[in-house]
């Protein structure tokens, strides 16, 4: 068994330790003797969705996001929209979460178009939303997994979800999508988006395992459930964030 990961724009969308998410996916596969390959797909590279089980996109600085915008929207956009509809597993964080939506509206009112894969949109505000984030996710709870997601958010965009998109989780501490409706992140089909950047997956092992299993099951429908791992290091790191008030 092998998990085939596409890392989109790793050289441009790499803020706040986003690489940690790839490391977590790799480690948790290899600890279970599951193969794991990571293919970097950047500007000018062909994105062939059929070759991957999971697609990861991180967040970037404005300067870098501007550089990839044309390639993302014109070349990869239609393929990404189709892959999302087909149920390929995506994890998109912060900047790329915003780019998956319809548009990003700057403070001066000008709009930057998004891929439009998900019915959501973002408006920039002067005050950045920064700090630790704890949110409760129903879909993890329904599967008997630890429902609390922890992370750190840092964004000036306020994201609003259309009716076809569900929030990933409900904020218990922090701001989430917009600081108003308590929603954090987004789910649409097998696409998962969050503002919890950086080491999101390392500190949320149940979410990581859920993504690995969901991604693998599309290609290996008869696979056994994933072996349990010792999560004591992960839980110690979570404990710190969960105990702060």
């Amino acid at each position: 068994m092998e998990l085939r990961i596409a890392h989109l724009y790793p050289d441009l969308l790499n803020l706040y330790g986003d690489r940690g998410n790839i490391i977590a996916l790799q480690r948790r596969c290899t600890w279970r003797s599951i193969g794991c390959s990571v293919t970097d797909v950047s500007i000018g590279d062909v994105f062939d969705a059929s070759r991957y089980d999971l697609v990861f996109m991180g967040g970037g600085q404005d300067h870098e996001q501007n550089l990839l915008h044309q390639d993302l929207i014109e070349n990869k956009g239609p393929l990404i929209r189709q892959a999302v509809e087909d149920g390929l597993v995506f994890l998109c964080i912060c900047g790329s979460y915003q780019l998956m939506g319809r548009y990003y509206e700057e403070q001066d009112g000008s709009r930057i178009s998004g891929i439009g894969a998900l019915d959501l949109w973002t408006q920039a505000k002067p005050k950045r939303l920064i700090g630790d984030l704890v949110a409760r996710s129903d879909f993890l709870a329904r599967q008997g997994r630890d429902p609390l997601l922890v992370g750190f958010e840092n964004h000036s965009g306020r994201t609003w979800l259309g009716s076809s998109v569900q929030p990933l989780a409900i904020v218990e501490r922090g701001f989430g999508n917009n600081g108003e409706d308590h929603g954090e992140g987004a789910i649409y089909k097998n696409t998962y988006c969050t503002y919890a950047h950086g080491s999101f997956l390392p500190k949320n092992p149940e979410m990581t395992d859920y993504l690995i299993e969901t991604a693998l099951k599309r290609r290996y429908p008869d696979m056994e459930p994933l072996k349990k791992l010792d999560n004591s290091y992960e839980n110690n790191a979570r404990k710190y964030l969960l105990s702060c008030k």
Binding site: N14, Y16, G17, R19, I23, I130, G131, F152, G198, S199
Partner: peptide, 9 residues
């Protein structure tokens, strides 16, 4: 800095 994510870089 309140964010420790940089250690993953």
């Amino acid at each position: 800095g309140r964010d420790v994510s940089w250690i993953w870089d």
